[in-house]
């Protein structure tokens, strides 16, 4: 515990002036990542700017494209009927972050800016082609595609003085479906061993477009072009899903760590990617599939 300055900003402009004054201020929303990191040996920053009282950053607007204020919590996302029905992969992901307590404080903005390659919401944001708005006192707003935001584990392309304002997720064509599935060792307070998200659009029975992204198998969240290509033009039959699995394993570049070794991750990412694509196709066909997709799949499915 050290000498930490603490400010609570109540407006975006106030937050921007506090983070833009060259004092290396760190923004905190719910605080869970920041404090857990400090316990892990990293120092807490000397200058903390709390943004949790900025009402303007709190909302979820699903009237056209989906706009998530930086402070939208995982509990808010999980409870949103629009997100559950349209951007379902995101609901699958937020619903399994930590526990109820984590979901009450954890925010989409904190998740995105913490840039963990194991974050649950990252792969869904990739397959849903999300973009973020970064704002600075000097430079105004700029829009960054989510692919260009994450540059490494814990690193983003945001500049000092920039604040994440919102995450925008485009609306989807008709007959689309999405899903996020993770491999987990326990039901709560878990982080993905590996995870995968898929978003597909159908024409009749055939997949006409697909995106697949992978969690915890690289230095950032990864797209898997091979897995996506393997399902386009198919009905998502067993042969196509096997090709999805092979493609995901080929595109992954996992490491060994405390939770799993490289070989296990590479083998499992194929299985999980296949399940994510399968659920996305089922949802695109209008089939009801529980949210979150993860525990039901692990316990009840014969596939």
């Amino acid at each position: 515990m050290g000498d930490v300055a603490f400010h609570t900003a109540t407006t975006v402009d106030e937050a921007l002036s506090l983070v833009g004054d060259g004092s290396d201020a760190k923004v905190v929303a719910g605080g869970s990542d920041l404090i857990v990191q400090a316990r892990g040996g990293r120092d807490l920053p000397a200058n903390v700017v709390a943004i949790h009282r900025i009402e303007a950053l709190r909302g979820i607007d699903a009237s056209g494209d989906l706009t998530l204020g930086a402070l939208a919590s995982h509990a808010d996302i999980t409870a949103s009927a629009a997100i559950r029905s349209t951007w379902t992969a995101l609901a699958d992901a937020s619903a399994i972050v930590g526990s109820h307590a984590t979901r009450n404080v954890g925010t989409i903005g904190g998740n995105v800016m913490n840039a963990s390659p194991a974050m649950e919401t990252g792969a869904p944001l990739l397959v849903l082609d999300a973009r973020v708005t970064l704002r600075s006192a000097a430079g105004g707003d700029r829009t960054v595609p989510i692919d260009e935001l994450w540059t490494g584990p814990g690193r983003t392309s945001a500049q000092p003085g920039e604040l994440l304002i919102d995450v925008v997720v485009p609306s989807l064509p008709a007959h689309s479906g999405s899903a996020y599935v993770r491999l987990e060792y326990r039901r709560a307070m878990e982080i993905a061993i590996v995870g995968a998200s898929a978003c597909v659009t159908l024409d009749g029975d055939v997949v006409t477009s697909a995106a697949v992204a992978l969690t915890a198998v690289g230095p950032t969240l990864l797209r898997s072009p091979s897995a996506a290509a393997a399902v386009i033009g198919t009905t998502g039959d067993a042969a196509a899903l096997a090709a999805v699995a092979a493609g995901a394993s080929a595109d992954a570049s996992p490491i060994s760590d405390l939770r799993a070794n490289e070989d296990y991750r590479r083998a499992m990412i194929g299985v999980i990617a296949k399940r994510a694509v399968d659920v996305a196709i089922r949802r695109a066909r209008g089939e009801e599939f529980p949210i979150p997709a993860t525990p039901v799949f692990m316990e009840g499915s014969a596939r």
């Binding site: 603490f6 609570t8 905190v28 719910g30 605080g31 869970s32 404090i35 857990v36 316990r39 903390v48 709390a50 949790h52 509990a75 930590g98 526990s99 109820h100 307590a101 984590t102 009450n104 404080v105 307070m189």
Partner: peptide
């Protein structure tokens, strides 16, 4: 655990459960 894993520190903030070990008091 003092690391946001075990829930022994659970309190409610405005009626919602939160792990107090990983929440800044000033917030």
């Amino acid at each position: 655990c003092d690391d946001c894993e075990c829930g022994a520190c659970m309190v409610m903030i405005d009626g919602r459960p939160v792990n107090s070990c990983t929440y800044l008091a000033l917030q």
